[in-house]
């Protein structure tokens, strides 16, 4: 059962969180932003477009690296956080809040259930740091 307000994480470090209107927000984890360093540019997903699970929906750039953002589950982008165009640093400052990437519609809540919860993800992130 998906709880609104809770965060669900993918192995490629994106999160999904359901709001009260049954829409989902998508973003990248605090761990991902700290590995990336200062975000200088983001290429946002296309509004209205449907993406399959694991499809590339955008890119985040720091000065010397590029990271791809993947769809954690099948989803349709409803709107994007266009504030990120001018203030990409929001991703560093508040990755789970003002630094969200887009709002999406997800037809199967059960897809989201397959993702990691906060605790599981924390353990996962720690292990990938030591790799």
């Amino acid at each position: 059962m998906i709880k609104s307000g809770s965060f669900y994480f993918s192995k490629s470090h994106e999160w999904l969180s359901k709001d009260s209107n049954n829409k989902y927000r998508i973003g990248i984890s605090d761990f991902a932003q700290s590995e990336l360093g200062d975000v200088v540019y983001i290429s946002l997903p296309e509004t209205g477009k449907t993406y399959k699970k694991d499809a590339k929906i955008g890119e985040i750039e720091s000065v010397k690296s590029v990271s791809e953002i993947y769809a954690p589950v099948d989803l349709k982008i409803l709107s994007v956080n266009s504030k990120l165009n001018d203030t990409p640093e929001l991703i560093n400052q508040d990755p789970k809040g003002a630094g969200f990437i887009a709002e999406a519609e997800i037809s199967n809540d059960s897809d989201v259930e397959g993702l990691m919860d906060e605790n599981k993800y924390k353990a996962f992130a720690e292990s990938s740091h030591h790799e």
């Binding site: 540019y41 000065v63 640093e89």
Partner: peptide, 8 residues
């Protein structure tokens, strides 16, 4: 050098 500013 502030490369973050340079790129932003």
């Amino acid at each position: 050098v502030n490369e973050v500013l340079a790129n932003k």
